[in-house]
Each structure stands twice: as C-alpha cells, then as structure tokens.
Nucleic acid binder design. Structure first.
Lengths: 139, 139
DNA sequence: ACTGTAATGCAACTATGTTGCAAAATTTAT
DNA sequence: ATAAATTTTGCAACATAGTTGCATTACAGT
C-alpha cells in the first residue's frame, strides 16, 4: 500500500517524505473530500500545520488533488482522477455534500451540464455543488 | 433612495440603523456580490468589523442576502430576489465569476439544471458556479 | 419624552492561512 | 555506501478572518 502511494509521489516528481505519504494515503483511504483540519486530526498531529498546508499546495500544483468550493467556506480537497495533469485540472465533475453526515463526494461519472449564458459571457469552468442526502443517510 | 432602503429594513422587521442602511444600500448599488472586506472598505471604516459581520448575518437570516460558495474561499454575499423569504432561500440561480475583473454576478434568470444523481442520493439544493469572462471583459 | 429592547463598539480570543529561516531529511552523484 | 546539493520540515512570527461577552448607546413603541 505504502509502496503504491510512494510510486504516485515519484511519478509526480515529488520527494517521498513521511508527511506526504501519510497525507496522500489518507486521501486514498477516504470516500470524500478532506479539509486541512481533518487531515491534521487524522494524522494525529504528527505533522506541523505548515507542512500540511504546503503539502496540500504541492499536491494541487501537481494535479494529485483539487479544491472544492464549499458553501461553508472551508477549503475542501479531494483526489483527482487520472486525467488531471500537472497545472491543468479537468475538474468538471459534480460535488455532492451530505447535509446530514457532511461528507463531500466527487461524483466523477456525472459531468457538468452545458449552461447557456447571456450574450458576451464566456465559460471557462463550471462547478456544480449539490447539497442533500447521500445514499447512506437517505435510508 | 435611503427611504426605499429603510422600507426594506422595516419590512423585514429590522430596526433601522446607519450601518444597516449603508450596507443594504451598498448592495443595491452594486452589480455583483460583495465580501466583508469590500464592505468594510466601501463604508469607509465608519462601522466596526463586528457590526458588519453581525449585519451580514442578520441580512442572511432575514432573507435579504445570500452567501455564494466561491472558489477562492472568501465568503461572497449578494442580494436575494423577491422570492427569498425569511429562513428559506430560493437560491437556485447561477453564479458567475469573471476571471479578469473578479466581479461575481447572480444570473437570476438562468435556473440551475436538474441533475440526475446515483441511486439513494437526494437533492436539496443545487449551486452552480461558472468562471469565465463577463460581457465587459470579453470585448 | 420615557422606557424597554435591540444594536453598536471595544477588547479579547479562536481559527485559518502565510512567510522567513535554520535544522533535518531526501535525493543525486560519486 | 557516502558525501554534497537540494528539498522539505518545524518553529516562530505574523497576517487575516471570524466569534463572543459585555458595557454603552441608539432605536421603537407608547
């Protein structure tokens, strides 16, 4: 497992450090998106706050994770899929936040719809954020 | 002008104070969404930071303004339209952020599309955030 | 104008995020 | 395997955002 994680890091030409391995592994182990605070907590305060911030920054730059605009304005980070490359994110999928359990899912297989804008407006990127109940909480 | 603003405040059963009038007027004068920092600046530091925070909170509660999830995670506030009522926002329109001038527009006349979710998922609210170039910057 | 209620400003505090720099760890080359 | 060069880390300090309690002040209704 750790080997696979480290291979990903090397592929992105990042040096392998305990912090980066742990954080990337965390992402691969979780369903949903993570906040800085959650990462700090789940890594058991082994790593400095600053290290986590910088690690997340680097991961975003290298196309390993992407940020999700959230309604309560805490930055969410989630794994990118294969087609995200360094510098350019293909982040055209839909994000779903459960009102009950507060988990954020990336619904990768659902792509954002085309939305016609008024004259003169040009779309670069479309983010869709749906709030509601997830399959687990909707039973 | 100020009279019209104060009438709105009274309709929402809010007491009329210089701060509330000024801030609500600011919203009615601007095209796009505003951040706390911008409001603080545009009111010329007449009002305490805390007062502005509390005013925005009250306006959101009363359905006068709504928050917009933004990609850079600064909280944006924008005027609600007629059909927003106390406690329940009908915030199903599209938000557009210009990459160049950074203005955020509420495209009220364009409603969010229906998006089919996986089995078990239930939609409560859909937010759409489009980034690109606005009519002014796309000339 | 007076009184009860609500809003304001101040101070202090928490949370979140950033920057510079020395120490430590990782990588690369030998 | 070792040493040099480069990166990363942790610490300290700082910057920005947002919250809370409380005394003072302003507002609304009579």
């Amino acid at each position: 497992m750790t080997d696979a994680i480290n291979t990903i890091l090397k592929k992105s030409s990042l040096s392998v450090t305990p912090g980066r391995s742990a954080i990337l592994q965390l992402f691969h182990q979780s369903d949903g998106a993570l906040t800085h605070a959650v990462i700090e907590e789940k890594t058991g305060d082994q790593f400095d706050r600053v290290t986590i911030y910088r690690t997340l920054q680097v991961f975003v730059e290298k196309g390993l994770i992407h940020t999700i605009p959230s309604p309560d304005n805490s930055i969410l980070y989630a794994l990118c899929k294969e087609d995200c490359s360094e510098g350019h994110h293909h982040d055209n999928h839909i994000h779903f936040i459960c009102d009950k359990c507060n988990t954020t899912y990336c619904l990768d297989h659902i792509t954002t719809p085309y939305i016609a804008l008024p004259n003169g407006f040009k779309t670069n990127q479309t983010d869709v954020l749906i709030k509601g109940l997830c399959a687990q909480c909707n039973l």
